[in-house]
Amino acid sequence: MDPRPTILVVEDEPEIRRFLRSSLEAEGYRVAESATARRGVIDAGTHKPDVVIVDLGLPDFDGVEVVRQIRRWSTLPILILSARTQERAKIDAFEAGADDYVTKPFGIRELLARIKVALRHAARPQAGGAVLRFDRAVVDLERRTATRDEEALHLTPIEFRLLAALARHLGLVVTHRQLLVEVWGPSHAGDTHYLRIYVKQLRDKLEPDPLHPRHLVTEIGVGYRLVCSD
């Protein structure tokens, strides 16, 4: 059997499919293509891809719907391709279960980086028990301890829960709503101000330069992404 990871590209524009195929194959991936949303949902079942890339603007039905249908039976990583003008659809896609996105036009380096993160995430899902390493701080989510420059660092239970929720999707985008529900519960799904305040607290404690965060990264209008080695 072919050992190369398979990437399914659901995209109606043949030019973009062609460029993705040649770039991804050059990087050692096997590429399957679907030109319509309907086909994409079927191919995601038959090709058993390791990652699916879905364009949001598909002719027959919405890319968001493709994400929703695949999520009914699979947890495989889904990346979406969105245009700058599709902010709303992008958020809908995340709510439907997409893991990450790349904005068109994109450079291949950016896409490859996203694919790598997605594959790593798929290889060991629920890595939430790990130890998170920031530049100067280390957080052990399992033992619930934290240090900064070897000094003990006090994190509140909510701060631990927020970090854990982000760490479950390490390197991937987690929406505001998802974080609020996981940390504060479904009745607080709209209380974005909670999140703003706690993210700031965490940045102040963990980031070397809280004004230019490198680990707790803002995805404007969508959510946050935790970037760190574990």
């Binding site: 033992r143 934290a146 000094e151 003990a152 660092l153 006090h154 509140t156 239970p157 631990f160 101000h193």
Partner: peptide, 22 residues
């Protein structure tokens, strides 16, 4: 004016093993 946010209750804070005491 942003809506109020309940402060973390002392009970809840005490429940975590994290502490200022190294």
């Amino acid at each position: 004016r942003p809506p109020e946010m309940p402060a973390e209750t002392p009970y809840e804070a005490a429940d975590g093993p994290a502490t200022d005491d190294p």
